[in-house]
Nucleic acid binder design. Structure first.
Lengths: 195, 195
DNA sequence: GTCTATAAATCGATAGAC
DNA sequence: GTCTATCGATTTATAGAC
């Protein structure tokens, strides 16, 4: 892993972000030093500053990129005219997208407090934009009489919180396949918002 | 807040834990220094070590005490013979207990990774014991045909994750009263596990 | 673009006076 | 029980050689 002197790169930037992602997710942003990240990449600490102005910007970029990927990936999920079908798609999308990026998801909601207020506000706006997609589905289902929730905003947050819980226990080698997990959660969500 | 020399105390211990609780919840365990905690209490950093052997033990005690309070408080909720009624009581208990102690709850699941493996295992055992109380209700309801969930373990984690979400948005001055919040969540939980 | 070296501040924890 | 003082290690970030 040790690297000799000289110019490497084009790939050092991505490797730094990958190493930071993994270390931040495992130990927490505040507990990880720039030297640890550098050692994981195989460079000296000073070299990191060719790629990020400071430690916090490194965290911010990881979170921002993740939120942008989340939003653009969900844009690919075509919305139909049936709220129940849209909700089923949302549940499947959310579970699968998040399980494919456990470290990013973990950081994106565990390390918010380590962002400056400007960065924090920006990430929160992106998160809110994603939540709004689900709320629109619930409101439309409510409007046409397919769903019945007392409060669409709370129902939105409740559904997302429930789905995020998958991350804390799911293991690919576990008892249930991904299809089964999706089915179990879809059953609960479907009933929770049903008439 | 500054304190003069001499013996104070019997109350310094609780004040240290209270300060640590608040600071850990706000900034994260790793980001808070012993000097910050001492300053909040109004003593010098060295004095803290009359009350804790080290920083991590301070975190551990906060988490352990919280889990013990959670378990013994739930013991006070008398179990009936009706699973639906027991579930309703669980939902109400969980929401209210957690909203009364947001800092403790936050720390108890955000700072697990900062515990040594022995401490971690102990806290996890306590958490599992609490989850088992809910799972017993779901299994009994399933057995007598009142509930229908594909998997009681997953349903347990899903319900708790959903309820924990309240902490992220509830404000006492907000749009909904505590009774209303409880009602909204109970509606969703009730339907999610219904036949 | 990466290195070595270092500045300047801060960390957890301890020793010993009072 | 709290203070002052300090040890020794570590931190983020920068400067300058190559």
């Amino acid at each position: 892993m040790a690297r000799t002197q000289g110019s490497h790169s084009d790939i050092t930037g991505p490797r730094i972000r990958k190493a930071a992602l993994s270390l931040f997710a495992r130990h927490g942003y505040a507990a990880v030093s720039m030297r640890q990240i550098a050692a994981e990449v195989g460079v000296q600490a000073g070299a990191l500053y060719n790629y990020t102005p400071d430690k916090q910007s490194l965290l911010y970029r990881l979170m921002r990129d993740h939120m942008h990927e989340l939003l653009s990936a969900y844009d690919e999920v075509e919305a139909g005219s049936d709220p129940a079908e849209d909700l089923r798609k949302f549940v499947g999308f959310h579970i699968r997208f998040n399980l494919q990026r456990p470290d990013e998801v973990f950081i994106a909601y565990m390390e918010l407090r380590n962002l400056s207020s400007e960065y924090f506000a920006e990430i929160e706006t992106l998160r809110r934009r994603y939540e709004d997609q689900l709320e629109s589905i619930l409101r439309e289902g409510q409007r046409v009489g397919q769903f019945s929730v007392a409060d669409t905003k709370i129902a939105t947050l409740a559904v997302i919180a429930m789905l995020n819980g998958v991350l804390t226990w799911y293991r690919a080698q576990g008892r249930l396949s991904l299809d089964q997990v999706e089915q179990v959660y879809w059953d609960m969500v479907r009933k929770a918002v049903a008439i």
